[in-house]
Write a protein that binds this DNA or RNA. Sequence first.
RNA 1: UCCUCAAUGGGUG
Length: 435
Amino acid sequence: VFSYNILIRGFCVNGELEKALDFFNQMEKNGCSPNLVTFNTLIDAYCKLGGIDKAFRLFRSLSKRELRPNLVTYNAILNGLCREGRMKETGAVVDEMISKGLIPDKVTYNTLVNGYCRQGNVHQALVLHAEMVRKGVAPNVITYTSLIGSMCRDGNLHRAMELVGRMRERGLCPNEVTYTTLIDGFCKQGFLDDAYAVLKEMVEIGFLPSIVTYNSIINGHCLLGKMNEAMGIIQDMKVKGLVPDVVTYSTIVSGYCKNGDLEKAFSVNQEMIEKGVLPDSVTYSSLIRGLCEQKKLTDACDLFKKMLSSGLHPDEFTYTTLIDGYCKEGDIKKAFHLHEEMLQRGILPDVVTYSVLINGLSKQARTREAKQLLFRLYYEDSVPDNITYERLMDHCCDREFKSVVSLMKGFCMKGLMTEADRVFESMLERNWGPS
RNA sequence: UCCUCAAUGGGUG
C-alpha cells in the first residue's frame, strides 16, 4: 500500500491525475486496498486541481469503505474551499469535523487563516489567530507568514514588520518563506532598498535566497521598468547555481510587454524555449496582452491559436485579455464571440471579464445591451456567484454606465417584491439608497 | 516521516 501511495502522490503533484487514478484502480485489482492515506492524497489532489466537487464525491465515498475521514482529510477539503474563496462553506465543514470528534489543529487553523488572508479579510484572519491562541493551539511560523503576506498585499509594510516583531516575541523566527514574503511585499511597492535590506538580513542569518526570492526581486525591478537590472539578476542567480524557471522568464516577458518592448519580450520567449523552459498560459497571456496594447489584434489572435495548438489551456485571464483588446478596438461583436467561446470551453467569466464587456458596451453608448447583460448577471444561475453589485460597481468607471446600474437597481428592487429573489433580497438588506 | 497549512509571473479600472 505504501508503494502505491507514494506512486499515486507522485502523479498527483505532477498534475497527472489520470495516471494516479489508474494506479488507484490497479491497486484494488491487485488485492491491495487503498487506505485512508490513499484517499487523502487523491482528495487533496482534486482540491488543488480545482475539482473540489470530485473531492467531495471521494470524501462521501469513504463511508462505503468503512473508512473514517481524519483531520488530514478535513484539512485538505478545507484548503480546497479556501483556494476557491469559498470561506462561507468552511464553517459547516469545521462543525462536521468537530461533531465527529476531531479537534481542529494547527493545520486547520493555518488553512483557514490563510484562506481569509488570501481573500483580503485580514480581520477575520486575526480573529482566528486570536481564537487559536485562546484554544491553546499555538500559532507557528506558517500562521504568521500568512498574516504577514496579507499585510504586504494591503501595502501595509509597517504592520507586516510589526508582526515579525510579534512572532519573535513568541519565540518564533522568520524563515526563508517569511523573508521572501517580506521581500516580495517591498518589491511590489517599489521599495527595492527595503527589499534588499531584508535580503541582506536573511542571508546573514544563514538562509539561502530561493528561486522564489530571486523571482520576486526580478519582478520588483520589472515593475519599475528597470529591465536591464532585472536581466542582470538572472545572471546572479545562475552564478549561485539557480536555474531560471518559467516564472522567472514570464516575469521578464511581462516586464518587457508592460514597458512596450515587444521585440525583447519575444526574444526572451524564444530564449526560454531554447533553454528548455516551456512557456505556459501565463507567458502567453502576457504576450497577448502586449500585442493587444499595441493594437496588433491579428497577431494576438494568431498567438492565441499557437498557444492552443501547443496544447496549452487558455483560462479566464487569456480570454479576458483578448476580449479587452477587442473592446478597446470597438469590436464588440468579436468580444462577445470570444465570450461565447470561453463559455463553450467551460471557462467561467469572472468579474473582470464582465467589467470589460460592460465597459466596452457602455463606451459604445450601447446602454441597452449593457443593461441586458446586467440583467443576465442577476437572473442567471450560471453566472459565478462571487459577482456582486459592489464588485461590479467597483470595477466600472463610466458615469453613464453607473447610471444604468442605478436604473437597474431600481428595477431589481421592484423585482424583489414579486419574485423574492435571493439576490434582490440581499440587495435590500444592504440598504441601498438611490445613488 | 505514505496524506493536509505559508512566499514568486498574466486580464478591466
